[in-house]
Design a protein around this nucleic acid. Structure first.
Length: 307
RNA sequence: GGAGAGGUUCCCGAGUGGUCAAAGGGAACAGACUGUAAAUCUGUCGGCUUAUGCCUUCGGAGGUUCAAAUCCUCCCCUCUCCA
């Protein structure tokens, strides 16, 4: 099998400067960007997901942004399929695919060809959720132990989300197994992680969150609600939108909103960093020194790997 | 000036003689991660070359006791009410 599709991956935590740097390098290398971001796929969630600015998007083609409505489910599997498609289109044009994003699982699903098990089934999931409410988590966990003790071993008894998924998977008929899963990656990816010292990163996050609120994040959220989307829609549950929803419902005082979102964003960044720290062969670059010249240098540095 | 209430480990807050390095929550730090992943979950959280061990800690200084965050004395500070 071919393993020759070259890929540039630029990962990193929120506010690490991925989008900007990716656009720069993509322009130099004649590439197109494929976003690996679980929230940017959703339309209308613009400010809070820090979608790349218009200027960047006009300068370089971006894929997998604004492809879903807020009430549509989108999973790591959907990402893998969509990204593979986008990548093959890009390469067929003779361009370099530049994966950019902070969603570690998505990147992994694509790069390592995770097979993911049975397709998620809204019906069984709903059933399991009602069972959870009726019988408690422990019962579900015990059941999982009976059906798939190996998987149960890997999951913590408190992890309701994974327990439900594991049961959903275990209870599904085998036919749902994907036939086309690869045993090795078809991609030859060069993986970069943007970041830097924790302190400046956190300062940057705090400042950016504040800026987002100044840019009308609350109004944007309210507008999406007014469009008729229910709060159970997935993107409403991510960092920031979630807290804004609480505020709009009167559950969170206004003066606590911004600090709260800043804190959650910092935590999110930490989780991302923890995730990327495990990626083998990744090259870490300090992107926090901020200056325009520094960014250009970084871009040149990255491009050096593709000559 | 008088009457009450209170000062506990980074914060909030339990604890009124031993089972207390001290519940619980928060914050912080670290980690996990195969179809919700910006999600979900876990661990650590006074110090010590890591121990059924030692040392330091519950406003301060003394005292009682085999033993005190817990009892007594004095002092300092905070809050509420009355003047």
């Amino acid at each position: 099998m071919r393993r020759n599709i070259k890929l540039l991956v630029i990962a990193g935590s929120t506010a690490s400067g991925k989008s900007e740097l990716a656009a720069k390098t993509a322009r130099i290398l004649d590439g197109e960007i494929v976003s690996a971001d679980s929230v940017q796929v959703y339309r209308h969630f613009n400010i809070g997901s820090a979608k790349p600015q218009r200027i960047l998007r006009d300068a370089v083609p971006h894929h997998l942004i604004d492809i879903m409505e807020p009430d549509q489910p989108f999973t790591m599997w959907d990402f893998r399929v969509a990204a593979q498609k986008a990548i093959s289109e890009i390469t067929s044009r003779g361009k370099l695919p530049v994966l950019v994003g902070g969603t570690g699982l998505y990147l992994k699903a694509l790069l390592e060809n995770l097979d993911g098990g049975a397709a998620s089934n809204p019906h069984t999931r709903a059933l399991l959720k009602s069972e959870l409410e009726a019988g408690g988590l422990t019962n579900l966990y015990e059941r999982l132990r009976g059906i798939d003790p190996v998987r149960a071993q890997e999951i913590h008894p408190n992890d309701r989300q994974r327990i439900i998924r594991a049961l959903e998977n275990a209870q599904s008929p085998q036919l749902s197994k994907k036939a086309d899963h690869f045993t090795f990656s078809q991609y030859d990816a060069k993986f970069f992680v943007l970041g830097g010292p924790r302190k400046p990163l956190y300062e940057r996050i705090d400042a950016r969150v504040e800026e987002m609120f100044e840019n009308g994040w609350i109004d944007e959220t309210r507008a999406i609600v007014d469009m008729g989307y229910e709060k159970k829609c997935k993107p409403f549950h991510c960092v920031g939108y979630r807290q804004i929803m609480l505020y709009l419902e009167g559950e969170l005082p206004k003066e606590e909103l911004v600090p709260r979102v800043q804190r959650e964003t910092r935590r999110y960044a930490k989780r991302q960093i923890t995730w990327f720290a495990k990626v083998k062969g990744a090259v870490w670059l300090n992107s926090l020194s901020a200056g325009e010249d520094d960014m250009n240098n970084l871009a040149d540095h990255i491009c050096g790997y593709f000559k």
